[in-house]
Amino acid sequence: MISKTYSIIVAAACAALLAATATLNVAIDPQCVFRACASDGRATANERYHRLLAYKLRAVETDGLLFSNSRGKAFDTNAVALALGAKHVASFAVSAGAITDHLPFLKYILSDQAAHGGKIQKVLLLLDADFFGTRPWTNLNLDSFLPPEVSGESGLRFWLRYLFAVQFKGWRESITSTARRDLTATPNVRLASLDGPPTGLVAAGGQPAQAEEAPTPERLSRISKSHKPFLNEQLRDLDEFVQLCRRKDIQLTIALNPLTRVNSSTYEPGRLEDTIASINEITDLWDFTAPEWLAEDLAHWLDVSHFRPEIAQVMLDRMFANAGPSDFGRFRRKAESGSLER
């Protein structure tokens, strides 16, 4: 083979691969960034991108915001608007959403509102005692990249990533989910994405009783899931979020989502309480993690992680109408964990 043939074959094969990948990505569009297909219910869609598009469509009338991970999808935005006393609430409830998503979104929206003379009056921020402090999914996956306006990255880079990403699973998932979308209605939640990679850590000598315990898979898994390597960073982000709302005179309500017993028992004892206490050192909050009747009864849940819309409504009633069961939701004043109930 001569060098010219070698060069042309290699270059042509590389170009063909690029072209084929780009064609597949545009045609299948797993993240729904090339056309509006997010409503197809495909699990690979970039919800962060679509939440921003939805906000932009009604930016002028938006004066309230809802930030959450997929658990917040149980909230009806009209009901949230009614509870908050807002004209329109834009939802940023996204799969595996974390404070690392919420803070840049809030910053972008505040500057966008300032640009057209609008003002955000109310914000409802839903946090999770189990995921707070774990590795966030922000900008980690193709489906979790923040839109370029929000992240500040070059728009070209954002689009090229989606054009040239080789994503066999994404293509397959999109094709199968499109094929079955008319057959079954599935809730748009992603359990797998919430579980995240196990990255456990436990202080040596800190818990001698456990050190003697046998290294069963369950125990190892519990130790892994309890690891919160990003806790301090996320607490700093939360503090910035709170301060930003304060500076902009925004009425901020923060709540911790309920957890099932099945879910909370997969963590080391005391770990979730420590996280709640750390969050509470920064801000007042509504703690919905505790009630036994909710944690034990899976009838209130879509799955072990996501509560039903009825529970979301009860949460709103507790926070904004002083109604609902009194054992559901404790209001904790900043740095006075468990001191005040109402």
């Binding site: 456990g200 436990v202 040596a204 000598g205 898979p217 190892l220 898994s221 892994s224 690891h227």
Partner: peptide
């Protein structure tokens, strides 16, 4: 010493299990 070092089972989960 070993007793002062933290323990993370996640990366070696398979070997431990």
């Amino acid at each position: 010493g070993a007793s002062d070092v933290n323990f993370n089972p996640a990366p070696d989960f398979w070997f431990l299990r």
